[in-house]
Design a protein around this nucleic acid. Structure first.
Length: 638
RNA sequence: GCCCAGGUAGCUCAGUCGGUAGAGCGUGUCCUUGGUAAGGACAAGGUCACCGGUUCAAUCCCGGUCCUGGGCUCCA
């Protein structure tokens, strides 16, 4: 019998007889590993544990701690779910069912949508399948055989056709009990391996994500190796639900929407308007400090501009109106306005770079189905800037922008990022040379700024390459943050120039960039990031004065006025009720400080300080508290 | 936009198999004058999203509109 040699991840080599299964190898390494093993990888190909190994190569065992292991595990769970569905609904036609981050789904063609009760029945049926510990059996079939097996399933037939077109001649199917599915695999050895799972939701989805094709019923679920891990995941979902900005927006009096006023158009309540203003003021100060000039441009511009810019031709989803027979568009972007201002005078190379900044409010026609609280709205304000510079200045300007973006986000409590550099897409304009220069400048700036990044080939805008920075929030979710784009199109369309040292006109280079991006969106992220407990410099109400009795009300008013005079955001709780109730109210609103005043304080001119997290800090003179807050309430220095 | 599920008091929700509705919290008034996360009593508060239809009668059934929510890349 011949042997093969396996190179293990630690570099060691293992000689095993040809035909040994991955599971046997795992057992030889250790029984714990064998127990946790879900699949193996041989020379880059991931395969079933029980499949004989036929060749030498690099070998690794996947467990649930690997992304690949999770995928196999959850993909198998998806099969179990599909089998359960087919047992209960003979009319269901399975389509595809992959693993996704945190779970899995399976799409079915169904005569009717699933219901909540169905979910329970399906889960119960899954329990039976798991208990029966049915093996997943891999079988290789020819294309013709596959066609026969799935003759009554047009979706599978379509997949088979595509696979054939891609040159596949041998396809694999997995059998598990009476359920057979076209599947690349691999799978766990048997259904009993799926220890903890839960169906989480159902939804409609289009076949292949194409809204012109058949609408399918999708079931979402998740699976973990033990009930505790599953519960932790469900708890995380609950945590996310508790900090949902829509819920907190209501509870903390931040913003609201009105059905009668239109979808996707937020109204800021006093606390939300204050929060927003604090963020905007800070953003403006930071821009001015870095040499940006403040602009302000109208919301309406004649439609011709959008034709020059190309937005009209691209059918950019914007709103148009008519004024005395002349067509106007509500701006979906601020750039044309900034370009008009730049072009309103001749610029010398000595003036460059010109950095124009505007908290520019734009409106875009988002499709009704995608609106989502503050995170996706139809009217929003961007911290938008356009930098006009010479090609030589491009890299240093980009470095400046990257450092600026990072500093600013850190100030708001975001410290982890993922960065994507998107390069030239197929449909694009501009010369190869310009694209190359711009893309290199972006990459050089990223390196200079010390940011690790991932290249998204072909994902750039049609007019230029871009950098997207995603930020990680307090519970590990990634959100779209700053975007920095080189524009190789607008300068040509609008003839954006500067006079060079040689006295001749040269084409300027243009950078579009946002840091907070949509302020609405950013506020939504901030609310969720802090779960409503804003740092004091952001808190809409920084201090609330709580009089213990009505006798102390007048003193409380004086204290509140003193706080307001000192520039703090303060209010007085003049409700009737016990101190405990007042404290509870303030705690639920996550107010940073409470100043409790009763007879003792009124007599001595003191305040009893209570901090949101630290609790009772004891009495102190009001002056001392004011002095303390003078520093503490300032934005952190970035 | 499309599919599905929803819209009942300020908020969270119950309810009516067609006979115009309830709770808790919140709000108001009164009692209580309190010392660090809910003191008590009473009261007010609803065109049951909007418009039409069916019906003796519609919050409930039917149709439309508006709004909200979950989805709509992840490839067998």
């Amino acid at each position: 019998m011949s042997t093969i040699s396996l190179i293990l991840p630690d570099g060691s080599t293992l000689e095993v007889p040809r035909g040994t299964t991955g599971l046997q190898v795992a057992e030889s390494i250790g029984s714990r590993l064998a127990k946790a093993a879900l699949a193996v990888r041989l020379d880059g190909r991931i395969q079933d544990l029980e499949r004989p190994l036929e060749e030498s190569g690099e070998f690794a065992v996947y467990t649930f701690s690997d992304a690949e292991g999770q995928e196999v595990y959850r993909h198998s769970a998806a099969h179990v779910m599909a089998a359960a569905v087919l047992r209960l609904f003979r009319e269901a036609r399975p389509t595809i069912g992959p693993a996704i981050p945190d779970g899995f789904y399976y799409d079915f063609e169904m005569p009717r949508p699933f219901t909540e009760e169905d979910l329970e029945r399906i889960e119960a049926e899954m329990h039976k399948l798991v208990k029966a510990d049915l093996p997943f059996v891999r079988r290789e079939v020819s294309v013709a055989e596959a066609r026969e097996i799935f003759a009554d399933n047009p979706y599978k037939l379509e997949l088979i056709e595509e696979l054939e077109a891609e040159g596949e001649t041998v396809l694999s199917v997995y059998e598990m009990g009476e359920f057979t599915d076209l599947c690349r695999g691999p799978h766990v050895p048997s259904t009993g391996r799926i220890k903890a799972y839960k169906l989480t939701s159902m939804a409609a989805a289009y076949w292949r994500g194409d809204e012109n094709r058949q609408s399918l019923q999708r079931l979402y679920g998740t699976a973990y190796p033990d009930p505790q891990a599953l519960q932790e995941h469900l708890d995380r979902l609950e945590q996310a639900r508790l900090r949902d900005h829509r819920k907190l927006g209501r509870e903390l009096g931040l913003f609201t929407f009105f059905e009668q006023a239109g979808a996707g158009l937020p109204y800021y309540l006093p606390n939300g308007a204050m929060l927003r203003q604090t963020v905007c003021d800070f953003a403006l100060q930071q821009h001015l400090r870095r040499g940006y000039q403040l602009l302000r441009t109208p919301h309406l511009i004649r439609s011709d501009i959008w034709e020059t810019s190309g937005h009209a031709q691209q059918n950019y989803p914007m709103y148009y109106t008519d004024i005395e027979g002349q067509s106007y568009g509500i701006k979906p972007m601020n750039c044309p306005g900034h370009i008009l201002i730049y072009n309103s005078q001749t610029h010398s190379y000595r003036d460059l770079p010109v950095r124009y900044f505007e908290l520019g409010t734009v409106y875009r026609h988002e499709r009704s189905g995608v609106l989502h609280g503050l995170l996706r709205v139809r009217g929003f304000t961007q911290d938008d800037a356009h930098i006009f510079c010479t090609p030589e200045q491009l890299t240093s300007e980009l470095i400046g922008v990257l450092n600026f973006a990072r500093d600013m986000l850190r100030t708001f409590g975001f410290s982890e990022f993922e960065v994507d550099l998107s390069t030239r897409p197929e449909k694009s304009m501009g010369s190869d040379e310009n694209w190359e220069h711009a893309t290199e400048a972006l990459a050089a700036a990223l390196q200079e700024a010390g940011l690790e990044y991932h290249v998204d080939e072909g994902e750039g805008a049609f007019y230029g390459p871009k950098i997207d920075i995603k930020l990680k929030d307090a519970i590990g979710r990634l959100h779209q943050g700053p975007t920095i784009q080189c524009d190789l199109n607008m300068p040509d369309r609008f003839d954006v120039n500067y006079v060079g040292e040689d006295g001749k006109e040269h084409r300027a280079v243009m950078i579009h960039r946002v840091v907070l991006a949509g302020i609405e969106r950013f506020l939504g992220l901030l609310i969720e990031h802090y779960a409503g407990a804003f740092p004091i410099w952001l808190a809409p109400v920084q201090v609330r004065v709580l009089p213990i009795t009505e006798r102390a009300l007048e003193y409380g008013r004086q204290v509140r006025d003193g706080l307001l005079q000192a520039g703090l955001r303060a209010e007085l709780d003049d409700s009737q009720g016990t101190l405990s109730a007042k404290i509870r109210d303030a705690e639920l609103l996550r107010l940073p400080y409470m100043l409790i005043v009763g007879d003792r304080e009124a007599e001595s001119g003191q305040v009893a300080v209570r901090h949101r997290e630290e609790g009772d800090l004891g009495p102190q003179p009001l002056e001392d508290f004011l002095a303390r807050l003078r520093d503490e309430a300032q934005p952190p220095r970035g």
